[in-house]
């Protein structure tokens, strides 16, 4: 039992260190330091900084628990692409309402979802804000209840009746 724990701890430290060092290389080393690649004192600064950050954060950086993380990550990336398209639609929608092409008819709605885990709730709350015409006001995590401000009737209906986005988020985090 202790062996497995020790192994996963080493794995966490190594993984965090690799990510932190690559991050440092991308941000500062590439243009400043690497033209003289044999100067190890300069590289060692990066190693030192990465080590400090690693020992401060490795416990929260790699979640450890949870299953099918890779599958979820792959689904999340395709979901993020869909979300970018929704940001575009949302801005076009609000532009029309600002210049008076579409009317505004604001209302506050409440509805329940099947989502329970923290990450799914946060993703869905952010998605509501990014999609056309709706902004999250409050979340009750126990019931998965959302209080949402909608700027007109159609965006509100797309959340309470169509439920496209609930299904997408539920599919990503396997909480249908």
């Amino acid at each position: 039992m202790t062996d497995i724990k020790e192994e996963s701890r080493t794995f966490k430290i190594v993984l965090t260190f690799c990510v932190m060092f690559i991050f440092w290389l991308l941000l500062s080393a590439w243009t400043v330091y690497l033209p003289e690649p044999y100067d190890f004192t300069k590289i060692s600064r990066g190693v030192l900084v990465a080590l400090i950050v690693t020992f401060l954060t490795y416990e929260i950086f790699v979640p450890g628990r949870g299953e099918k993380v890779l599958l979820k990550a792959r689904r999340f990336i395709s979901y993020a692409g869909w979300e970018l398209w929704q940001i575009y639609l949302a801005t076009i929608d609000i532009t029309k309402r600002v210049f008076g092409i579409l009317p505004i008819d604001p209302r506050i709605i409440e509805f329940d979802t099947t989502l329970r885990s923290d990450f799914a709730l946060v993703t869905f709350a952010n998605s509501i804000t990014l999609t056309p015409g709706t902004i999250t006001i409050d979340v009750e995590p126990e019931k998965g209840r959302y209080i949402v401000h909608a700027i007109a009737k159609e965006p509100a209906d797309s959340l309470t009746e169509d439920q496209t986005m609930q299904k997408k988020v539920g599919y990503v985090f396997m909480e249908e």
């Binding site: 940001i87 609000i94 804000t129």
Partner: peptide, 12 residues
């Protein structure tokens, strides 16, 4: 509704 206007247009 003002938050709608600023919050969304700023992102894009």
């Amino acid at each position: 509704t003002r938050m709608h206007a600023t919050g969304k247009c700023d992102t894009l």
